[in-house]
Design a protein around this nucleic acid. Structure first.
Lengths: 248, 248
DNA sequence: CAGCAGACTAAACAACTGTTTAGCCCGCTG
DNA sequence: CAGCGGGCTAAACAGTTGTTTAGTCTGCTG
């Protein structure tokens, strides 16, 4: 059995993948149909229109995101289950719960830039989570709310999101995908270092209690001027079709 | 004389404005023609094709950007000409040298997200500037290069750019345009605070020599849940047509 | 004044878009 | 076995796209 999904689900998944990569307006029904191996008429037979298909994919993705976000806002303690640096960043959550090559990071990017109610609602939701997280950190004595807590939470959020929005650009100049395991391992400590002591401090943290005062494994090597063939992205190759996320 | 620009320049400026707002693919030649008050045929008469028009606008914008960037990489000292917090952020440069409502910030956003050689080249250029700036700050003893200078410069850059990319979303949740004078006055100090001492420090800076240890004017007021009619954006009103930038 | 080049328009063109229509095929229920 | 509803396709439809064509007008040069 090569594929146990219904044809309808295949169409939805292919639309999701294409929407994430190129934006919904740039994707035609015929492209979706070809990617799903069906006729264009069948796409509108299952979904009433392209716009309705888009809304359905949006809703599906938002449901998955809400499940991922419960990881951050779930109980209150951040849960130190597995090792590694638990920044609580969105990138780490995506990496831990989504298969490699998942189109969901791209869909997140597209939604945030889309000028739609879905995108605005998602950003408001993320901002609320960011504020809650900052409050929790402040209550735990791990951070200060700053002079302007709303602005501070917003800055922390958009800094987190910028990795999603500029993923390809960062991959090009750093030679490493910032949303890969290796990328997060390299980016995370540096970001933590800034958050811990600002731009002047070098030590990971001045007063964090336990463990890991050592540099992980980011050498001073410079892959900078070699943008050639870094991590591939598989724009239209026949990749794992069920790479969406374990939910629903 | 209501407009001393040539018709060709009017077309280019309207194309620039529309491209920045909606992205080139979403803008039709007929929209550009209508905005410029000419016929569609004249657009392709002056510029050979839509794609060529786009390239020409790209080149024009990149030239203006290069002029703005010389502000950062010009001599070496950051030049404390006028007062205020000189973060050296791109937002401040844009605000100082561009008229309000300029489409150039939107064009910057579009270019960075566009998956084109122009966008990739611009990001590489900005990354180079970011590295130079970090090096200069480190040489001046104002910042540390961190354990991974390349990553640190990249993080500082994308954090700066995120305000451009998520400008509308930030305006919605904060109730203030982060690229306006008031927005920068509110965002800048908070960002400086993080860069100065990390997330734990409240004081503006532990060892910066002179001036301004006081909170500017950001009260604890919460315009948070009132997204209604904040700063307007003038999507298609007849605004100042020559609002592009003093150059070329 | 002839004419000629360039700004400019109106109309048509082929290609593509989302969507509709008509109909085929197949497994089910009666 | 009649028929019937849903998955599915091929073809056509109307609208929009970038572009081309033919032609008008205007100002300048010989």
């Amino acid at each position: 059995m090569p594929d146990d999904r219904t044809t309808r689900a295949v169409i939805r998944d292919e639309a999701l993948r294409l929407f994430a990569a190129q934006g919904p307006e740039a994707v035609t029904i015929r492209q979706i149909a070809t990617a799903a191996g069906v006729s264009p008429g069948l796409v509108v037979h299952h979904f009433r229109s392209k716009d309705n298909l888009r809304q359905e994919v949006d809703q599906y993705v938002l449901t998955v995101f809400e499940g991922l976000l419960s990881e951050l806002t779930g109980d209150g303690t951040v849960s130190f289950e597995d090792a590694g640096a638990a920044t609580g960043s969105l990138g780490e959550i995506f990496l831990q719960h989504l298969p490699v090559g998942s189109p969901l990071p791209g869909y997140l990017r597209m939604l945030l830039l889309s000028d739609t109610d879905a995108g605005r609602g998602l950003f408001r939701r993320l901002y609320a989570v960011s504020r809650e997280t900052l409050d929790a950190l402040a209550d735990a004595g791990a951070a200060s709310r700053g002079k302007d807590p709303q602005v501070r939470a917003a800055l922390l959020l958009v800094n987190d999101l910028s990795v999603f929005l500029l993923r390809d650009q960062l991959t090009a100049v750093l030679g490493i995908d910032p949303l890969s395991a290796a990328g997060l391992a390299r980016l995370g400590p540096e970001l933590l270092s800034i958050y811990a002591g600002g731009l002047n401090a070098d030590a990971p943290a001045p007063e964090i209690p336990p463990e890991a005062p050592e540099a992980p494994e980011a050498p001073e090597t410079a892959p900078e001027e070699a943008p050639g063939q870094a991590s591939h992205q598989a724009p239209e190759a026949a990749q794992a079709p069920e790479a969406v996320g374990g939910q629903a």
